[in-house]
Amino acid sequence: MNTPMNLFSSLSVSAIVGVIIGLSFPMTAHAYIDAGSGSYIIQIIVATFLGGLFAIKIFWKKIILFAKNLFSKGDKHDTTK
């Protein structure tokens, strides 16, 4: 039976899927096993999300590193005065 919660989850999945489809590009895949349509879609959604987090993590580390370098340079400059 479709409860409102299940319906909401299905709609959420469909909405995210729609966004991802729009962002996709052409590429042919060859395989003797069935990747499964639903598995294929969820893989792209989850991997894109995780890849995004990874990119943010790297970017954030760079910002922190840049800020640290900036302040440490400032400190050095002060001490030489």
């Binding site: 991802i20 489809i21 996709s24 590009f25 052409p26 590429m27 042919t28 895949a29 990747a35 349509s37 294929y40 879609i41 893989q43 792209i44 989850v46 991997a47 894109t48 995780l50 890849g51 995004g52 987090l53 990874f54 990119a55």
Partner: peptide
């Protein structure tokens, strides 16, 4: 499936 791709970074993260 020919229309959907995944970057190497995303695949590695998965």
């Amino acid at each position: 499936t020919s229309r959907r791709t995944l970057s190497r970074v995303a695949l590695t993260a998965l």
